[in-house]
């Protein structure tokens, strides 16, 4: 039982067979497969890196977008606030102007009324004096006979007239 003595014939054939197998596989077999696998590994690594970069870029874009949105929102709020302030100011100003105008008109009306009342009073007074003169003429014509009575009467009239005037 030559289990542990290598047989020459088998040694010879094993060298030949393994040599041929090794030659064929090392030339036409494994290098092609491993080269392709390496290429693909590199390609996958490259793709992964690119995908990572793209992801980072997208994240940056999303950040920008959020910032721009926030800015726009703030601007909108500011513009709205400005508009409302302006409106309020306008209203207040218009109000003030209107009330000034109204008071001016009132003032003018009051002054006109005053002046017209003064004029009316003056007219009334002149008319009254003319009327009094006429009345006095008549009375004087009738009571010219008594000199003292005339004088007393005249005084009374004058006094009355002055009192009326004061009142």
């Amino acid at each position: 039982m030559s289990l542990i003595t290598p047989d020459f014939g088998l040694l010879f054939w094993m060298v030949v067979i393994f040599g041929v197998v090794f030659f064929i596989l090392a030339k036409f077999g494994f290098p092609i497969i491993t080269k392709a696998v390496h290429q693909r590994t590199e390609y996958i690594e490259k793709s992964l890196r690119e995908a990572e970069q793209a992801r980072i870029e997208i994240e940056r874009f999303e950040g920008d977008q959020a910032r721009i949105l926030e800015q726009t929102r703030q601007q909108k709020a500011a513009i709205l606030k400005e508009a409302s302030d302006e409106r309020n100011a306008l209203i207040t100003k218009a109000h003030d102007e209107a009330s000034q105008e109204a008071s001016k008109v009132l003032q003018a009306a009051r002054e006109q009324i005053d002046s017209e009342r003064e004029m009316a009073r003056r007219e009334l007074r002149s008319e009254l004096s003319a009327l009094s003169v006429a009345v006095a003429e008549r009375i004087v014509r009738k009571e010219l006979s008594d000199e003292s009575a005339q004088k007393a009467l005249l005084d009374r009239y004058v006094e009355e007239a002055v009192r009326d005037q004061v009142n």
Partner: peptide, 15 residues
């Protein structure tokens, strides 16, 4: 060996 060579060369042919 023949089986091995055929298998590996067929595999290499795919690539």
């Amino acid at each position: 060996s023949a089986i091995l060579i055929v298998l590996i060369l067929l595999c290499a042919r795919w690539y």
